[in-house]
């Protein structure tokens, strides 16, 4: 950066770069976590269905499709975020997922269920002493904020963009 540019005032370009960088960080964090969460559920789809059932929200007929569909959705959204394709749209979907997870975990906690969120495979009932609701809520809140950032400002560094 040249001196003349600095003299011209705080550089909009530099500020833009910084915001793009923050966007990149949000994109990669949300993308990697979603991809990891989705992949972890693939080897044991029945466990994924059980984890969905453990929240005791969805009617019986929906737990199967959600238990099978959610990992695939997480993988697709995670990959697209990592690549930086259709960032606003994929971040919006990621944000919606996080809001749904936050609602699910909160209601489980409020209703006194003792479950593992099953976020990265596993899930289902656990001993009351083994629940980790605050940690799970904090993590998903952080990821949701990343999603909000990207919906608000989808431009990021190293994004492939949408065709």
């Amino acid at each position: 950066m040249t001196t003349s540019e600095e003299l011209a005032g705080p550089s909009d370009a530099a500020r833009g770069r910084l915001l793009d960088g923050i966007g990149l960080l949000a994109r990669l964090t949300l993308g990697v976590v979603l991809l990891w969460a989705g992949l972890a559920k693939v080897p044991n789809p029945q466990a994924s269905v059980r984890a969905v059932q453990a929240y005791r929200i969805l009617p019986g007929g929906l737990t199967g499709p959600v238990g099978h569909g959610l990992p695939v959705l997480e993988i697709v959204v995670g990959l697209l975020l990592i690549l930086g394709m259709w960032t606003r749209l994929t971040a919006a979907v990621g944000l919606l997922l996080m809001v749904a997870f936050l609602a699910g975990i909160s209601q489980a906690w409020a209703r006194g269920l003792s479950i593992d969120c099953g976020c990265f495979g596993g899930g289902g009932l656990v001993a009351a002493s083994r629940t980790r609701y605050p940690l799970e809520l904090a993590r998903d809140t952080g990821l949701a904020l990343g999603g909000v950032w990207l919906v608000w400002r989808p431009r990021t560094l190293l994004a492939l963009g949408g065709p």
């Binding site: 989705g38 992949l39 693939v42 080897p43 044991n44 789809p45 029945q46 099978h68 990992p71 695939v72 993988i75 697709v76 990959l79 697209l80 690549l83 394709m85 492939l160 963009g161 949408g162 065709p163």
Partner: peptide
């Protein structure tokens, strides 16, 4: 971009196949 979309679709399809086999 097109290559990436195809790759993402393949990964999703493989995940679905692996899941339905269990």
């Amino acid at each position: 971009q097109l290559v990436a979309v195809v790759l993402v679709a393949i990964v999703a399809a493989v995940a679905l196949v692996v899941m339905t086999r269990h």
